[in-house]
Amino acid sequence: MHIPKGPTAGLELALFEPALQAALQPSPDYDAARWLYVPNTYSEYRYILGTRGKKPLICVGINPSTAAPDALDPTLQSAQRIALANGYDSFLMFNVYAQRATRPDDMEHALNPALHAENRKAFRYLLSLSDQPAVWAAWGNIILKRDYLMDCMQDFAADGKAAGAKWYTAGPLLKSGQPHHPLYLKKDTQLLDFDIDAYLCAQRAK
């Protein structure tokens, strides 16, 4: 379990671009030719964790837990299975907020703008890996835990639109109108088209 040590504003953040360059180099801890892990060491936050391939599925959750290369947690194991079942050769786990917290209730109550800015650079990088990026909305009701999460999502939707991304959900939406979290989905759950703009409009109207 990961319990945050304190607000991320008190951390000296690893900026995304140099952290990415470090992650692209060989690592003594894992196979960097197979894994993309940014930052490439365990810390209080994580921008990206996933596998490398020519046809990746970007999975968007809420915040990281303890997962690392060769040590995926159940949520990421499920995300990987569903990506492969839907014809993708790899998955890239991204989160609306980069702070690690196994229990979403432990996420900080105030947005750290610096962390969000670096996380947004990470999302733009993932979008750049494909001509038409495939993005899986996979956050469940957890996005309602903090008001700032939906504000962050507005930025990521704009970035996706600029990159020509196509959004999906795994199975139909929950009764709450949120997309399913990966954890309890069947491994062969099919991806369905997801209108991110209509979703955000509906959320703003609530």
Rank of each mutant, 00 (worst) to 15 (best):
H2I: 14
P4W: 05
P4M: 09
P7N: 12
G10N: 07
E12N: 13
E12Y: 13
L13K: 13
A14G: 06
L15V: 05
E17T: 15
P18L: 05
A19H: 00
A22C: 10
A23W: 01
S27W: 02
D29K: 13
Y30V: 08
A33S: 13
A33H: 07
R34Q: 13
W35Y: 12
Y37K: 04
V38K: 00
V38C: 04
Y42I: 08
S43H: 10
S43C: 06
R46I: 09
I48C: 02
T51E: 09
T51W: 00
K55Q: 14
K55S: 14
P56L: 13
C59K: 00
V60C: 13
V60S: 02
I62D: 00
I62T: 10
N63C: 12
N63H: 07
P64M: 13
S65I: 11
T66C: 10
A68L: 14
A71P: 00
P74D: 11
S78W: 00
S78E: 00
A79V: 15
A79I: 05
Q80P: 01
R81G: 00
D89R: 11
L92T: 03
Y97K: 03
A98N: 09
Q99R: 08
T102P: 02
R103Q: 09
D105T: 11
M107S: 06
L111D: 03
A117I: 07
E118K: 08
R120V: 10
A122G: 11
A122S: 11
L127G: 00
L127W: 01
S128C: 12
S128A: 15
L129I: 09
D131G: 09
P133V: 13
P133Q: 13
A134V: 06
W136F: 10
G140E: 05
I143S: 00
I143L: 05
L144S: 15
Y148V: 05
M150K: 12
D151Q: 12
C152F: 03
D155I: 09
F156E: 01
A157M: 15
D159M: 15
D159I: 05
G160Q: 03
G160Y: 01
G160H: 04
G160A: 11
K161H: 13
A163K: 03
A163V: 07
A165Y: 01
W167R: 02
Y168K: 02
T169H: 02
A170C: 09
P172V: 07
K175R: 13
K175N: 11
Q178G: 02
P179Q: 04
P179S: 06
H180A: 04
L183Y: 08
L185W: 09
K186H: 14
D188W: 14
L191W: 10
D193P: 15
D197T: 11
D197I: 10
A198W: 04
Y199K: 04
C201Q: 14
C201D: 15
Q203T: 04
R204L: 15
A205P: 06
K206W: 05
